[in-house]
Design a protein around this nucleic acid. Structure first.
Lengths: 236, 236
DNA sequence: AAGTATAACTTTTCGTACATTATTTCAAGA
DNA sequence: TCTTGAAATAATGTACGAAAAGTTATACTT
């Protein structure tokens, strides 16, 4: 059996301090930011050298990343970066679809006035930014959703969601946002806030369903364009 | 931040061969089977000794398990077994609820005659066994569901589901199955097969929703009884 | 002479041993 | 009883040897 790696029980962010943890963060960041490209070999001694440490911390970091599914390890052949291709993104996005309504429902039922105010604050910041800084937009968008789900009693669900969100977010920053999509994001967020204020669970879930499906479809479409372009370049 | 550990991108089972992999399997098994109890400290040198190997393979196995969320690691304090308590089980079960209908839908739409025959074979074996062997029943029940989801195109979703299933399965074998629940399992499985044969996606999803919610509630209830009993023993 | 197979060599992973540093334990004293 | 500190214990990081995989070069066949 080969390790094509699905997605598992995420470890929550924990206090670092050890060299192993920081190298874990570094490699993880490099994978998600795209600095390390798909299928790149992760040689232990090389990583140890570039990060000014010895091999053991690197080996442990790679094992942890394997547990999370971001790194693929074949016995005696070492670690490679899990390719975040269209298929993988689609799969990750669809898992998100299944979890978000569940997470949202609890928020609508339990949201305080402060929670909603926080949402509106983030939303106004998103609108003010107006997509001028993609990385910042992705971050704010992440905050918008995280604000709603963070206090959910189900830490497992939240963890799965967040990990998937990070993967999607990592590629969102690398693809363009279509103009039409920009407007849709604004109106969808507003509709969501309105439904939450009205304590209308059904309406909120409906809006969210639309929102995340559109968002996911958009990412997959853009990725399809990028992959087609890449293959065209190879052939031409 | 502490690592209370949600659930992440699961690594698929891969070909072993290395000592690290086999020790990973061993520890994982001991956690899920209950041989290692909740919060038990996992001392590296101790595990190395009992498994006849050195410390590095153990350390790497623990890191991988941390990535999967089965082990909690605190800097400079080492690894502990993640407690699989009622809360955790409930959370894991609820994540399952969100994913199973999604996985099932695809199966109903694409199932071949052989697939359905396989389901019926497993079902008849379950009925023949009639709950006389709990471990075997859990295994068959797992097979019943896995048969439906295994060929789903979304490997990420399948991986998340399977990992959660393994956690639930590990405790199912440790709790009693109520008589009423036994009959319900049989009839629910039969109804599910009927709906699949009729290509009725909606009916299948409805039956499944009922089935997994009942199953989850049953596990949580039994666990509540067990925990209450344990705390009573402590007090009394 | 070109292509393939094989052998020598290099690189990398994997397991072992050890040094260092942090934590836990436990006993002595306030 | 609580605090303090020293010894024991365990985690983290470094170094190295053995085994496997990958690479290059050489010999052999067609």
């Amino acid at each position: 059996m080969s390790n094509t790696g699905p997605i598992a029980i995420a470890a929550e962010k924990e206090g670092t301090g050890t060299s192993s943890s920081s190298i874990y963060d570094a490699i993880r960041h490099d994978i998600l930011s795209g600095a390390l490209e798909a299928n790149a070999r992760l040689k232990v001694s090389e990583l140890a050298r570039t990060h000014n440490t010895s091999t053991n911390p690197v080996r442990e970091a790679l094992q942890q990343l394997r547990g999370e599914g971001l790194v693929l390890i074949t016995p005696n052949q070492g670690a490679r970066v899990r390719p975040i291709d269209m298929e993988f993104v689609r799969d990750v996005a669809e898992v998100g679809y299944q979890l978000e309504p569940y997470l949202l429902r609890f928020f609508v039922e339990t949201a305080s006035a402060e929670d909603i105010a926080e949402l509106e604050r983030i939303q106004s910041e998103i609108e003010a930014l107006n997509f001028s800084d993609k990385a910042r937009h992705t971050e704010l968008n992440h905050q918008f959703h995280e604000t709603m789900y963070d206090r959910h009693y189900n830490r497992v669900a939240f963890g799965v969601w967040r990990q998937h969100r990070e993967i999607l977010g990592s590629i969102s920053t690398r693809i363009p946002i279509a103009i039409g999509r920009q407007e849709a994001i604004i109106t969808e967020h507003r509709a969501l806030i309105a439904a939450i204020k009205a304590q209308d669970v059904a309406a909120a879930v409906t809006v969210l369903d639309q929102h995340i499906q559109d968002a996911g479809r958009h990412v997959v479409d853009q990725l399809r364009i990028a992959e087609a372009r890449a293959s065209h370049r190879r052939i031409g």
